[in-house]
Design a protein around this nucleic acid. Structure first.
Lengths: 290, 290
DNA sequence: TTTTCATATAAGTTCTCCTTATAACTGTTG
DNA sequence: CAACAGTTATAAGGAGAACTTATATGAAAA
């Protein structure tokens, strides 16, 4: 780069208007400034760019060649700035979310619908995997936000609780329930639980293990919805998330067992990078969830 | 444009090096200057461009998007500057010449050969037409140079003589020549002349007319070379340009008639715009001709 | 802890860029 | 033809942006 980039801005306008004085008005500076700037530019580049004639000025051949490049450059910068404006106003951009299927279905879906309706220009990308994997996606910048079961922590991330959930045991409508179950009694029931690697299951196992109770489920499934379905057709007693089985509980498709004491509450957390700012698109989504 | 273009230069280098201090060294300014500049840029654009981390800095998403555009812009400017350099050093460019066939063949050709050998990267474009038309090509910028028969003048053009030429009368080797011819005697000979609209013919007619002598050629041809050929096979006496018939005169293919007084000398002129500078390519060609 | 390596901030200075004023030139107009 | 209405060029001086130096701050490494 042989000269100040700002000179090119002035060169550009001057060439467009074919006149120093007109360009000056347009740029809100004096004609003299333009004249000096162009002289400087010409001497920096060692090339005559304009022919000064009676009726204004004309680009030389060299000037024309340069103009094409400068025009392209300035348009490019303009595009960049416009793009940023659009990002800021959520008229463009993308939102990359990592979340498990259960959380997506029962928690995020309604927000995603709203979000898309409000900001239709923002492309939404979903990834789903296991908690640790999802946190990695965020750390690698491949996802803006991850929704995971808490507790969970990471040096590089902020993980904020955004929904309290309760683990409850449910059974089919015809199941004969006792007034109340102790944990030991629960362990004796024909349990339907999630697979071992899921966070909900780990949470459950951990809590029971603290009381030296081992859980031996009769059935293990991979999907939360199946817990409800299986319980409803009397295949056993499922441990589900109360908030996610709300409809089925209300309709009596499953009924809740009273367990004493109840399992401790836990939360779903929203994870994002501690040191990098959220994209405008992600910020708007987080805002919406609150 | 929301901010000074120069900021983008700094932004670009900073983003490339992922470090304020490294970019500072590279740009030969202080780290502090970079820091201030980026802050200014961020506030002008209302967007955070970098994430400041322990080990240097990283572009934010918005920063990355901007960077692509800025990179393109800077490359474009760089290309433009490089292109100009090449033009200056005649490693690129084009030379557009307008000239009649005769002048091209007998005068320009050897220079064009040299020129192309010296500057092989310069594209040569030839146009040929009548004098007035060729001057128009120059005035419209469609030709850099026009080579025309003088005298000729134009407000917008400089027309410099670049070769003196002599019009002489020649005949075949067996033609019985007198010691010397008066103009009246010449007019009586069986003349072979160029067509009426050619400048050579007009020049001839004008000179004879001033002495009240009318020229009534037996044969009119369109091409200078045919004048020589026809004379050589004794179809008559041609008026040719001595310098362009040099070879044939030396070899005795045609012989020269001694005319008294001889026709006044005239010149071939090189025409170019008075107010616009010659392109580097054209300048080099003019230089070569001198 | 101390050291090191980043960026941020403060304050002062330099020097670029712009302004004003004027000149020089051309073409136009009363 | 002189005065004017347009250009761009040039000179000189002033405003302020951008840079420098010096120091603070903060996090990671030793």
């Amino acid at each position: 780069m042989k000269t100040k980039l700002d000179y090119y801005r002035i060169f550009y306008e001057t060439a467009r208007f074919q006149s120093f004085s007109t360009a000056a008005q347009h740029l809100y500076i004096s004609q003299s400034a333009i004249s000096q700037c162009i002289h400087q530019l010409e001497s920096d580049l060692n090339v005559q760019l304009f022919v000064r004639t009676r009726r204004g000025i004309t680009l030389t051949n060299e000037g024309k060649i340069l103009f094409l490049k400068v025009e392209n450059a300035i348009n490019s910068i303009d595009q960049g700035e416009k793009q940023l404006e659009k990002l800021r106003h959520l008229e463009s951009g993308e939102l990359k979310i990592a979340a498990g299927d259960t959380i997506t279905t029962h928690f995020l879906l309604k927000y995603l619908e709203d979000y898309h309706a409000t900001y239709p220009e923002i492309r939404i990308e979903m990834a789903n995997s296991y908690s640790s994997q999802m946190l990695n996606l965020v750390k690698e910048g491949k996802a803006d936000l991850a929704f995971v079961n808490m507790p969970l922590s990471d040096d590089e991330l902020i993980i904020e609780p955004c929904l309290e959930i309760d683990d409850v045991f449910v059974c089919g409508p015809d199941f004969e329930t006792k007034e109340s179950y102790s944990w030991e009694e629960v362990a004796e029931l024909p349990l339907i639980l999630l697979e071992k690697h899921s966070s909900s299951r780990r949470f459950l196992d951990k809590n029971f293990k603290e009381k030296n109770i081992a859980l031996n489920p009769q059935i293990e499934v991979a999907v939360h919805d199946l817990l409800i379905r299986f319980a409803s057709i009397h295949l056993g007693v499922s441990c589900v998330i109360e908030q996610f089985a709300k409809v089925e509980l209300e309709k009596g498709i499953v009924q809740r067992l009273s367990v004493n004491p109840p399992l401790p509450k836990r939360s779903i957390g929203c994870a994002y990078l501690k040191n990098a700012p959220l994209s405008y698109a992600a910020k708007a989504f987080v805002e919406m969830i609150k």
